[in-house]
Design a protein around this nucleic acid. Structure first.
Lengths: 373, 373
DNA sequence: CGCATTACCTAATACGCATTAACCAGCCGG
DNA sequence: CCGGCTGGTTAATGCGTATTAGGTAATGCG
């Protein structure tokens, strides 16, 4: 393919050029064909002429458009972005080994919202995995620096090293974390308001007449868990219900599983409603359901159940539990909005997104009298 | 263009040092810190020094690396690409409105493979979304040209406009389509070998003794569908079974649904095995299962069922159907390999990936005698 | 008629990086 | 002492586009 035939523009050493793509017309060639300057072509094609008060005559505009069309001109995004000094790229750094592979993975719905909002804002997404060696990067030491290639970056996962994030933040690089996080000072984040959502669930149970409610949570001190417990306790107190150590059961440990016997015992003690925390796998909810079932208690009748979150996907067929839904896609979208604001230089700190209450069908009034022994 | 103070960049005024607002460090700043020239920085960081016979002293190299690391330097992909080089970015263009939102979406597993293989090859991924406006451009393509920012691009979805893809291919831009596709001449693709996989399923059924097998497919002429039908018919012929228009039922139209009565009628006609095509939603398979069930036929005993693909995720609990699994992650990985080859200038055309046969538990020998009326 | 105003358009330059010709120091063989 | 090295670095340039500071002809105004 003759590379310097028409344009007479021989490139310097281009020996190992993998693809002969010098046939692609540039604005200069459009300009030549239209008999105008390259700048005019840029003005016309970017539509920035009348916007800024600059005027391009209809005649010229038409000539340029025709020339561009006949040459099949397509702008080079690399050049555009270089000249515009921003590349319209948002990074997404997930500390999972790969894409959230498991369909049940709780990150996946986030990504949906992230993707939609990014598109709406005109950004493309760069996916960074924790591993990628890159090769071309300068600081191999931490893959995290690679995110600077984007205009800003979103972080998923609680394993983000605090100091690294702090470094990015300190440098003024726009960063948003998906999920509440306090560690690096000044880090922007979006999170779900588990506290008030959990409180509302307890309030609903109390409103139905329940006086003894038990929270089953995992033995983990992630913010997502502690927030739920806090909301739970707030709900108890607001309803004037007993809020002692006995109101919460930390499960998950071997030997401390939720068994039918324990459920039966709790029932005997007067507990009429159970609240389970949502986890990635839905383990707590599954265990609770199974144990209640095995104990011979029927759900809305003998005992009420609630789930602080959404049920796992494979239980979609079952009657929906009382609880709340985390608007994950909305969270993702909100994170992008925050990031976008940061990139534009606007200050942005954090954002709590409200969960939606789900009445469900697993809760009703407590039985008239607890089954006596 | 808003030149909003904080987030905006240094203006053409060419302020030598971005004293106030920190912008991303460039090679020039690394060079200054290291006490060398920008060119040296480029040479060191690209690792192209000793490769081309040029030598950089270890001393200088170390200084540059240290400076780069301490500044957190990361190359600007747009600039790299513009300078006729590569930026280690692979594009993924999905014509779905968003990320494959539904967890059942068949594209999602592809992405897993894509992501893994990209990471293995040292590429980062850029997700190009179908919508974003991306500049007025030269009239025609609104969004597709953006992919040129990357070194190459992967396309998902059957809605890719042929002419646009053709344009990219003609320009020598490395493009790989996920899924068999003939339309733009010279387009590279990877696809699953539905033909032989489907044939093998029929062969298996014939081997069990079935003489009348019916294919239920949707009324769609996508390659994925026609390939399956072709393989199905090949299987029939190879087994010496009747292969007429009656062997295939195009479903999906309202009024042509798979009902219990139709199933019963087919059974009466001597059909002993049904084969369903896999679709995004698994509709055909669901309908078939439901109809057979309602018709009172038990699956492995009275009638055999097969699925040309994988069952939908929410039926994962059920006994696996006879059929085959599409190695979607493997397909994605293969696509990346192909793309990588194209980028390196190696010729690459297409690649068929073999599906894995799944014996399943929904097929057995036909009943001794079809239930007589 | 001369000068200020428009209305249009162009020249020039920057964007950040890769590439290459040129340069410089030392050093060896003759 | 010179030509020819070789190793090590830099100045200079180009990639294709966006942007801005002019510039020129046509028009308006006094």
């Amino acid at each position: 393919m003759a590379k310097d035939g028409a344009g007479g523009r021989a490139r310097p050493g281009r020996a190992p050029a993998p693809a002969g793509r010098r046939s692609r017309p540039r604005q200069a060639e459009v300009a030549e064909l239209a008999g105008v300057s390259q700048a005019t072509v840029s003005l016309v094609l970017s539509g920035r002429d009348d916007a800024t008060g600059r005027a391009i005559s209809q005649e010229t505009r038409r000539k340029v458009m025709d020339a561009a069309r006949s040459l099949g001109y397509v702008p080079d995004p690399a050049a555009s972005r270089l000249a515009a000094a921003r590349n319209n790229l948002l990074g997404v750094f997930s500390f999972t080994a790969t894409f959230p592979t498991d369909v049940r993975h709780s990150y996946y719905p986030f990504l949906v919202g992230v993707e939609q909002e990014s598109a709406a804002q005109g950004y493309d997404l760069v996916l960074f995995t924790g591993s990628s060696t890159g090769g071309a990067g300068a600081g191999e030491s931490s893959a995290l620096h690679r995110v600077r290639l984007a205009d800003g970056c979103l972080f998923l996962g609680r394993h983000a090293p605090t100091d690294e994030l702090g470094r990015l933040v300190a440098d003024g690089f726009p960063v948003v974390h998906l999920g509440r996080r306090v560690e690096p000072e000044g880090l922007a984040w979006v999170g779900a308001d588990y506290i008030s959502a959990s409180r509302d669930v307890v309030t609903a149970l109390a409103g139905l007449g329940h006086r003894r409610v038990l929270l089953v949570r995992e033995d983990d001190d992630a913010p997502a868990s502690t927030d739920r417990e806090r909301g739970f306790r707030e709900g108890l107190r607001a309803a004037g219900l007993p809020d002692g150590p006995g109101a919460v059961c930390r499960s998950g440990d071997p030997g401390r599983e939720i068994t039918a016997e324990r459920v039966r015992q709790w029932l005997d003690e007067g507990v009429t409603a159970f609240v389970a925390e949502e986890t990635d796998t839905g383990a707590a909810w599954r265990a609770l359901r199974a144990a209640v079932d095995k104990a011979g208690a029927r759900c809305p009748g003998d005992v009420s159940l609630a789930l602080l979150g959404s049920p796992p996907a494979d239980l979609a067929g079952e009657p929906p539990p009382l609880g709340f839904d985390i608007p994950r896609p909305e969270l993702g979208a909100e994170a992008v909005r925050l990031l976008s604001a940061l990139i534009s230089g606007e200050p942005a700190e954090k954002k709590l997104v409200t969960c939606t209450f789900r009445p469900g069908r697993t809760a009703g009034p407590p039985p008239a009298r607890p089954a006596a022994t």
